[in-house]
Simulated assay, not measured.
Amino acid sequence: MKAKSLQDLGAIRQQVNAAALAAAAAEEARREAERRAEAERNLFTHAVGNVKPIAAKDRVFIAPPRPAARPLQQELDDQAALSESMSDEFDVSTLLDVDDQLSFRRPGIGTDVTRKLRKGEWAMQGQLDLHGLRSDEAREALGQFVRDAKRMGWRCVRVVHGKGLGSPGKEPVLKSKVQRWLVQKNEVLAFVQAKPSDGGAGALVVLLGPSAG
């Protein structure tokens, strides 16, 4: 651009100065943007200080703990063993003492044991009431009760089976089944019919063997 007068020359100078100022401002803005970007990149380092990555050889792998075993399988095994070990077809007629109350004592157990059971010389430590249960429910409940009593170290317990007055024909069906089941349990050493005050013909007093521990 060629100045034709001093006035034109002044205008040209103003334009050059304005362009220089604009370029300087743009450069300053660019530098400020770079400073902010660098500050953001270093934000974590400024906050926590210098850190050193853990060397791979120093890392320890901790395996997650294995889930605790569920007792479901144990319960299923117990139920299966119970069904196999107590049969309704087991004949106990030759094993019961033929007296007015039909008692049972395992071979090697003297008559003094059943006599003491009848007299109540053993303190009763637990009771199972089978009233209202179906045959299969009663068998399972009895097996579980005997196992639990054995674990707790109980020696003398009572099993209430009822007198059968509510059964068809007034026959004490559950009573004979309970006798069969108890005879098949190795934990049972002897049982007698309960005293009238303890249930009479509707209950049995059962003596269990001592715990292994």
Rank of each mutant, 00 (worst) to 15 (best):
M1Y: 12
K2T: 13
K4L: 09
K4C: 06
L6V: 10
Q7F: 07
D8F: 07
I12K: 10
Q15E: 15
A18I: 07
A20N: 15
L21A: 14
L21P: 00
A22N: 13
A24G: 11
A25N: 01
A29P: 07
A33F: 05
E34M: 05
R41M: 10
F44P: 05
T45Y: 01
A47Y: 03
V48G: 00
V48F: 08
P53A: 10
A55F: 13
A55M: 13
A56T: 07
A56P: 05
F61R: 03
P64S: 07
P65T: 08
P65K: 07
P65A: 08
A68K: 11
A68S: 08
R70I: 07
P71W: 02
P71K: 04
Q73E: 12
Q74S: 14
Q74F: 08
E75M: 14
D78E: 15
Q79D: 14
A81H: 12
S85W: 02
S85F: 02
S93F: 02
L96Q: 03
V98G: 04
V98P: 01
D100H: 04
D100P: 00
Q101A: 09
S103K: 00
S103T: 04
F104Y: 09
F104R: 01
R106S: 02
R106D: 00
P107R: 00
G108Q: 03
I109G: 04
I109V: 14
G110M: 02
V113A: 01
T114F: 03
R115N: 08
K116E: 11
K116Q: 13
K119A: 15
M124L: 15
M124Q: 13
Q125V: 09
Q127P: 10
D129K: 08
E137Q: 15
A138P: 12
R139A: 09
D148F: 10
R151N: 15
R158E: 06
V160N: 08
G164P: 00
L165R: 11
L165C: 04
G169W: 06
G169C: 05
K170R: 14
K177R: 15
Q179M: 11
Q179R: 09
R180H: 11
W181D: 04
W181A: 07
L182Y: 01
V188G: 00
L189E: 03
A190R: 01
F191R: 01
F191M: 04
A194N: 09
K195F: 02
K195V: 02
G199W: 00
G202M: 04
G202E: 04
L204V: 05
V206A: 08
G213L: 11
